[in-house]
Nucleic acid binder design. Structure first.
Lengths: 240, 240
DNA sequence: GTCACGAACTGATACAGGTCAGTTTTCGGA
DNA sequence: TCCGAAAACTGACCTGTATCAGTTCGTGAC
């Protein structure tokens, strides 16, 4: 049985037995967290990193003006708080959205793995770059797309990521986000998100119901959002 | 003589002679580009990566609605197009803003370096995470800060980065950005940027003139922008 | 010295999205 | 089956920023 992490990294590097074994070794120290609990806290020193095995997590930052901005969502197979380990203090928060299962990883685990299986270093660098690409796409959306394009793009991207780990299709996916969370992710107000979702529904593009996203017209949605999966879709490992 | 890259990575990993030599080896294939030329192009296959040795570069994305969003600026010591090497096709553009000097790096160079000097893998992962942290901070600004806070935060961050490589101080720095570029970076219109800069000037906070940023009241600016340098400031290497 | 051209700057007006102040729906628990 | 709380939803009104359509400034070329 491959872990979601092995499955994700395997899309970039054709993993050997030895490399798979090292990844397996990352899953020694298991922990679980209840919904609403912070796994990573802004300003915390000596923060731990985790690999998400099951559940959803969101990374966010709180601003002094009382608002928050959600930066990214983590789904199974994603790292969590990797930046907080590499920096002295954590620059963001990460909150469990559902009950989550994680494996604890220390910086020592990572550095050892890099020394023994250097191709894993490249794979982790790739995964980090992929995270960065998602943040960049998110930035583009907030900077230059209007509320409707932005919302559509965001929900499409989430779908594409879930498809990679076997949790979604082109018809839709299960999604534990509330409209408030969507608003904090997209830099909009919850009121406006509600209106945008209604418009998307009325135009037959997508339906967002508690716990469920349904793509009513996938093709038209792709066009509206100018969505391109190039940066998520590896189409077979680059490194063999 | 340390290269800007060695100087930057040295802030995170205390580099050995061997590691410094490997970094030196990255600077074999030198190239230079004139202002306005694209070093990296969206959609390009088999894109090369570079290390910036001198000059300024900006990474941006073009949208089908005719607008552009600048994602990040690269200053000496920064990687350029690393994501484009790890992915099959480039997901962004990078344009020379001044005359720039770069060294070409292939994915093979990197993978070899990781195999021979695994601590460099950790250092490059750190540098990539630092880039991601900057994109995240940029995202926060566009999502939840108003035009004035956003502009102040951006110009402060640029100053902090330049200080790290010896190109700026708390009094100000040389900056080749036009108001149009600032607008594309901050997700605002050039007209509005102009008004915001006037307001910042009239309130005695900062002066933005062609080629020069002057912090008139650094402390008050930090407060307005809620600026925190934690994620840029390493305060001595973590890995010895 | 004046021409030309891009960058900086300006006032008037439009509109996307925010804010306020609710009502309605949903759903788990007693 | 009723209750309470959170999430979803709504209309009225407000505001920050965009857009349009210019003018002014600065600088290098001739």
């Amino acid at each position: 049985m491959d872990s979601p992490l092995a499955r994700k990294l395997g899309a970039f590097v054709a993993l050997t037995e030895k490399e798979l074994a090292v990844l397996e070794g990352f899953h020694q120290r298991r922990r679980s967290f209840e919904p609403g609990v912070d796994l990573v806290r802004q300003g915390q020193l000596g923060q731990l990193a985790y690999i998400l095995a099951d559940g959803w997590v969101c990374s966010y930052k709180l601003l002094p003006n009382g608002t928050r901005q959600i930066v990214d969502f983590q789904v199974p197979g994603d790292f969590l708080g990797l930046r907080s380990v590499l920096f002295r203090t954590s620059d963001h928060n990460a909150e469990a959205m559902t009950t989550v299962e994680v494996s604890e990883v220390s910086s020592v685990d990572l550095i050892d793995a890099f020394a023994n299986t250097p191709r894993l270093a490249t794979a982790v660098l790739w995964a980090t770059s992929r995270d960065e690409a998602m943040v960049v796409e998110h930035l583009i959306g907030i900077g230059r797309r209007n509320a409707m394009e932005r919302t559509a793009h965001f929900l499409l991207e989430l779908g594409a990521r879930l498809e990679l780990v076997g949790l979604g299709t082109k018809r839709g996916y299960a999604c534990p986000l509330s409209q408030y969370m969507l608003a904090d992710a997209l830099g909009l107000s919850a009121v406006h998100i509600n209106r945008v979702l209604r418009q998307l529904r009325e135009e037959g593009l997508l339906t967002f119901r508690t716990g469920q996203v349904i793509f009513d017209d996938f093709e038209r949605l792709l066009k509206l959002a100018d969505f391109d999966i190039a940066y998520l879709d590896q189409d077979g490992p680059l490194l063999r």
